[in-house]
Design a protein around this nucleic acid. Sequence first.
DNA 1: GGCTACATGTAATGCGTTACATGATTTC
DNA 2: GAAATCATGTAACGCATTACATGTAGCC
Lengths: 182, 182
Amino acid sequence: MQPQAKYVVLGLLSNRPMSGYEIKKHFEGNFSFFFDASYGSVYPTLNKLEQEGFISKTTIRQEDRPNKHEYELTPSGKQLFESYLRSPLLEDSIRSDLCMRLYFGEFADERTVVEWIETGIRRHEDTASTLRGIREQFKERMSMAQALSLQIGIDYHQNICTTLLQGLEQMKTHWDSKPKEE
Amino acid sequence: MQPQAKYVVLGLLSNRPMSGYEIKKHFEGNFSFFFDASYGSVYPTLNKLEQEGFISKTTIRQEDRPNKHEYELTPSGKQLFESYLRSPLLEDSIRSDLCMRLYFGEFADERTVVEWIETGIRRHEDTASTLRGIREQFKERMSMAQALSLQIGIDYHQNICTTLLQGLEQMKTHWDSKPKEE
DNA sequence: GGCTACATGTAATGCGTTACATGATTTC
DNA sequence: GAAATCATGTAACGCATTACATGTAGCC
């Protein structure tokens, strides 16, 4: 099960008031590793939370840019977020198309399987390095717990690369040891 | 993005005919690490695939148990699954309530944060050991790619434990070095 | 007597995505 | 002149979950 957008939004607004646009930007940066949500999710969530009285809206007029709506937590919103923090921890979940394909690898040819693995390595390497960049940028301003959440992300992506590389090695030596069967 | 239940079902039926109940069992075992789906998802998916002609149903009468519907791939179902295997690899995704909470750790007290981490360690350790059990049980019968998908799961859970333990250590030494502020 | 395993399904509901719709300003 | 950034939103649709509904057989 996964944390709902609602609580992530409340959490972000616990730090400081923000607009929907800014919230979405956060999802693309710092958060990208463990959460994501689109505009089609962010704006309706904000409207709903406002209607329910958990956040309040202020429209900020800007001359050179479109106006923006800045939302801030109300006391009841703060309470709601605190009750979330006291609720039982949900299980983490992974959806991995790569693992699923590997599981059914026997139905694809070897070249394809190798391509999947190589693509996986490239992607996880990229993400790991992006996250390392974020760490460098924010390390002074992060709490211990925050730093740990980032570290989990970095290690996750880095370790997957290691596992994938080892797997690739093994496959290659295995194929070399018994020449083509075609 | 995540692989749809539809393709996972087709993949399982590529090996051998199965009933909805058996498919769901697979999701709880071998697959649990990278995919899950409930009965409320499995049965409608099977019905839809049958209506579309991708699988065919045979009712098997059983005397000591309820009858069951065994589904097998039709040629067009086989084609559909193959076209999935040729389609571009989707990005893996994680939803982690633990990471999200850690990110907002400053709004909870230290004891709570420690409990989250300890719960995380326990859960990931359990899952890792379950997966190791599965590996022992099936290692002779698994393809290289299949073994790799399982290894990814094992390493993932094991490595998270390592990261969490290190984080916990660091937090503890940090707190010890600067006594309570209350 | 109660729990677990076997076995299938539906309905209400939640939650999210994609695509659409709009539009100004700045930068290349 | 094109593309990116800022900025907000809706509608259609997909996909999944939870809870409900039903029933037998075997084991402790």
